[in-house]
């Protein structure tokens, strides 16, 4: 099946007074209809910037897309101007932001905020828009929608607000929904509810979702496929089982190893030493080399290409080259790879 969204060699730079930040450095991925792609990475890895580029939200003139294509519906979104983008944004592509407090207008009633997009993009009449808004509030599980329509954001709790944000994002039946850390600001129990809601809606509406997060637990729950980003690049991409049960990139090992497992009380966590590189001066070779305990000499000289592991799985590390020594992932990660039993015990 043809992908609904195809990103090719995307580059994004920002001019700051300290120099040019190469926030995204050649990202490739595609998104199929009805699937959820999770993009994981630390702050500054370029995951948020990537999705901002998709939405045409890179602020010019400081931000630029010097190279790359974003193919959606036969159009290259990277080449569209703001006006053309506005027609697509909110209609075919919609976004949910991290903070439900700031993504709603505090002086506008909830109902009106939902209806706005409907009237603008779908040219509905006021009455139709109102009916649709009620439907949407029902869909996202807000009780008493008629009453809630006439309330202001401050009268909603954090979780309820995020539901409203989701309702607004879904208003025009978008083909792609981009969720940028939608649950990070919420408590775990509310987070679980919101994730369940999003999965439920996806099933009903067959939307494709790009889910940005730093929480591997959430990824394991929502994603069909996972892309791991580091220093502006995708270092590993594959199905959720590929990445969790057969990770190949040492950075993915590091991420998985830095989380405690249920019985790891006595062991040290496998922390990744140091801090991510400064993307004003990206290092030569593999950007992760300086923090990689499995670094090879070539890592400091040349950037690794994407090596194919299987049809669905590839990773950018020289460890996959035929000349590379056999290196086993660290013990904690191995245990996680066989993880099903370890975690399974808890419930019994």
């Amino acid at each position: 099946m043809d992908p609904i969204l195809d990103v090719k060699n995307l580059n994004v730079t920002f001019d700051t007074y300290g120099g040019k930040v190469q926030a995204v450095r050649g990202v490739n991925f595609s998104l199929k209809k009805g699937e959820t792609l999770a993009i994981v990475g630390e702050s500054g890895s370029g995951k948020s910037v990537t999705t901002k580029a998709l939405m045409g939200l890179i602020k010019k003139p400081a931000g630029k897309i010097p190279e790359g294509e974003i193919l959606f519906d036969g159009k290259d979104l990277a080449k569209l101007d703001n006006k053309q983008m506005q027609k697509i944004r909110g209609k075919d592509l919609s976004m949910i932001f991290q903070d439900p407090m700031t993504s709603l207008n505090p002086t506008m009633k909830i109902g009106k905020q939902i209806m706005e997009g409907l009237i603008l993009h779908q040219k509905l009449s006021k009455q139709q828009a109102k009916e649709r808004a009620l439907e949407l509030l029902n869909l996202v599980g807000i009780p008493y929608p008629e009453k809630r329509m006439n309330q202001y954001p401050h009268q909603f709790s954090g979780g309820m607000r995020q539901r409203v944000v989701i309702a607004i994002a879904l208003a025009c039946n978008p083909k792609v929904l981009i969720a940028d850390e939608p649950t990070t600001a919420l408590d775990v129990t509310i987070q679980a509810q919101i994730i369940e809601l999003m999965k439920d809606i996806q099933k009903k509406m067959d939307t494709s979702i790009i889910f940005i997060t730093h929480d591997l637990g959430v990824v394991a729950n929502v994603a069909d496929r996972v892309a791991v980003m580091y220093a502006g690049k995708i270092v590993e991409i594959g199905t959720v089982d590929d990445v969790f049960y057969n990770p190949k990139h040492p950075y993915t090992w590091g991420l998985l190893g830095s989380l405690p497992t249920v019985d790891s009380n006595e062991e040290k966590l496998m922390a990744i030493p140091g801090t991510p590189p400064d993307l004003i001066h990206p290092p030569k070779g593999d950007a992760f080399a300086a923090r990689n305990e499995f670094a090879l000499a070539i890592d400091f000289e040349e950037e690794p290409p994407m090596f194919k592991v299987s049809d669905t799985h590839s990773a950018a590390t020289w460890l996959l080259h035929e000349n590379a020594p056999d290196i086993e992932p660290p013990a904690t990660v191995k245990k996680r790879m066989a993880g099903i039993s370890v975690e399974g015990e808890r419930q019994s």
């Binding site: 987070q191 637990g217 729950n221 975690e343």
Partner: peptide
């Protein structure tokens, strides 16, 4: 119990 059951675990099979 509800708090524990809501923690996302980095293990797709478990999830």
């Amino acid at each position: 119990k509800s708090l524990l059951s809501a923690i996302p675990v980095p293990d797709p099979e478990f999830e």
